[in-house]
Design a protein around this nucleic acid. Structure first.
Length: 208
DNA sequence: CACCAGGAATGTA
DNA sequence: TACATTCATGGT
């Protein structure tokens, strides 16, 4: 299995090259984007992020102080704006009350993950995305594409989040850069190929 | 027109 | 524990 997961990674990396995720300048932007992209096309998230940036709100501290109604209007392009505005308030409050990234980085990954999960609006995938791309912790992010990949290539019988995450983390070196690229490459693969059919013309994973 | 996109919370059995 | 429903905009 170790060889299999590495072969998949190598093929994706050879085809697409490094993805340099997360597509954001600041860690605040990673966190905000992680909330906004929940079940939403990234293009729509970009529009919402631009709106926030134009109003100087692409910072957790600023969002913490801004009224929810204003946030709703600005993030509308990302959909689910009623709940996402509330979630952004929750996560920004969390970072302000915990003195930001520096202090939170002192916690071990497991404890930090649990604290993130306690924030209403942060589920497992969002928490792990923040841990990997904002805190640079070596952790596997499992999204719908990852589940589909595992199922199609029969990497294991499982379908729930924890089992698939363990599959990757127990069979790969715990390297932050590896998990960073692996998740980004799976998303890249999904966008380029295999959205509807298991086998697509030119798919880099043919034969695996 | 239907369907989906870098999910999570809530309710039901 | 395992599903079903709800949330909402914008592209295909």
């Amino acid at each position: 299995m170790k060889e299999k997961l590495l072969e998949i990674f190598n093929r994706l990396y050879e085809r697409f090259g490094p993805q340099h995720w997360w597509p954001a300048k600041t860690r605040d932007e990673v966190v905000i984007g992680a909330i906004l992209t929940q079940n939403t096309a990234w293009k729509n998230v970009e529009n919402a992020l631009d709106n926030l940036k134009d109003n100087g709100l692409l910072e957790l501290k600023k969002l913490y102080k801004m009224d929810t109604e204003t946030i709703k209007e600005l993030i509308k392009p990302a959909g689910f704006f009623n709940q996402k505005a509330e979630y952004l308030k929750n996560i920004s409050k969390f970072f302000v009350e915990n003195r930001g990234f520096e202090e939170l980085s002192k916690l071990d990954t497991k404890a930090l993950r649990q604290k993130l999960l306690n924030v209403k609006g942060v589920g497992k995938e969002t928490a792990d995305s923040i841990l990997l791309y904002a805190f640079e912790k070596p952790i596997s992010v499992v999204d719908a594409y990852t589940k589909r990949l595992v199922k199609r290539h029969k990497l294991c019988e499982c379908s729930n989040y924890d089992e698939i995450q363990n599959l990757f983390m127990e069979n790969l070196p715990l390297d932050e850069e590896l998990f960073n690229e692996y998740h980004a490459l799976i998303v890249k693969l999904a966008k380029e190929f295999c959205r509807k059919k298991p086998i697509c013309n030119g798919c880099p994973l043919e034969g695996i």
